[in-house]
């Protein structure tokens, strides 16, 4: 598996950047000629991961969110979303659908959306150090008339 393309992005954990982050990642994927559904799936998953950083990783402060996206020669996209925030105490619980620690109107579906819309989701977290969410998805290599 060789890396065909690679981009890095960092921005402040301000909610106004959620739209910017998902737009930037989806623009990066455009050369793969994804379907509307594939692109929308990735945008939604990225939006969830970035929102988690903004809401949970840096609850009372503004920190930095890092995105690292790669495209492989097998048409796989690997997107790493990282923060240096508070970390997740119990990853298994955090990934349960409808679980949320937020008192605001959060549905608790962030990880459920990521898992449903991507082929693979990995989460590594250390309390007080931060969290890394890695999202992977194969973009179908279909001829244009079959898309």
């Amino acid at each position: 598996m060789n890396i065909q393309n690679h981009m890095k992005l960092s921005f402040l954990s301000r909610s106004v950047n959620e739209a910017f982050a998902r737009a930037a990642v989806s623009s990066f994927l455009l050369p793969l000629d994804p379907t509307v559904t594939e692109l929308s799936d990735v945008r939604t998953a990225v939006s969830e991961a970035v929102t988690n950083c903004i809401v949970h990783a840096y609850p009372d402060t503004t920190g930095v969110v890092y995105i690292d996206a790669k495209i492989t020669d097998t048409n796989k996209v690997i997107i790493r979303i990282r923060d240096s925030g508070v970390g997740i105490e119990n990853i298994k619980q955090a990934m349960e659908p409808l679980f949320t620690t937020s008192s605001d109107e959060r549905a608790g579906l962030g990880f459920a959306v990521m898992q449903s819309f991507m082929d693979r989701v990995r989460v590594r977290s250390q309390k007080g150090k931060g969290t890394v969410v890695t999202l992977e998805k194969f973009i179908d290599k279909l001829p244009d008339d079959k898309k």
Binding site: R43, T44, E48, E105, A107, L109, G110, V113
Partner: peptide, 13 residues
Amino acid sequence: SFMDSSGVGLVMG
């Protein structure tokens, strides 16, 4: 044109 799970929270609320 786009909605993530924040929209689910919005509808539930």
